[in-house]
Amino acid sequence: MSLVQISKVSRKYQLNSISVTALKNVDLAVAAGEFLALAGPSGSGKTTLLNIMGCIDKPTTGEVLFDNTQTASLSSDQLSDLRAEKISFVFQNFNLFPVLTAVENVEYALFLKKMTADQRRKKAEAALDLMGLLHLAGHKPLEMSGGQQQRVAIARAIVREPLLILADEPTANLDHKTGEEIVDLMKASNRQNKTTFIFSTHDQKVIDRADRVVRIWDGEIVSA
């Protein structure tokens, strides 16, 4: 049974009078526990597809079934709650909150969960430790390297123990070595917690580390 299943999904963007079709009739099923790479050149529709699977965007036509729920009928608040409970994101630009320290950034992901401040702090520290960053817990993002920031971002994603982690080009702003380390950390988490990972990339070294590769070209899936 799939964790995410999208059927006949199209996504059109309307820019003034010009209409861009970013996804054309896409079908894709991702099973729980997969470690999947979405490969394709820039502008091929990777981000659009991840956004739709992550329930932060809706398809123009087609259906999205997330963890057996039809997302089309959900309200904005219901979608927020669904994401808070089941989905985490990792971004190309890390997107940490600059005013918060590393450990606070990780804690913030637990903000919407019912637990005490103490429990939050413990869990956040454990996640940072797993990323080998406990010694930087009190540092602000701007005091850290890109690789360190992305590891904080991964800690923030895994600390919530979601069903799915979506990473949009997580290594694009990092050098190759650091990028590979990041993918290895994600893979370790996938192996350990059975968390499903879908990440987009156009870096062959990163693609090689995936269990399954879905290739996308001009808004269409060319090999799955």
């Binding site: 992550g54 932060i56 904005s76 608040d77 927020s80 709650d81 669904l82 994401r83 808070a84 409970e85 989905i87 985490s88 994101f89 971004f91 997107n95 909150f97 913030y108 992901a109 903000f111 919407l112």
Partner: peptide
């Protein structure tokens, strides 16, 4: 980012 994390509007 906040909204992606699940913070409501």
């Amino acid at each position: 980012t906040l909204m992606a994390l699940g913070v409501r509007r």
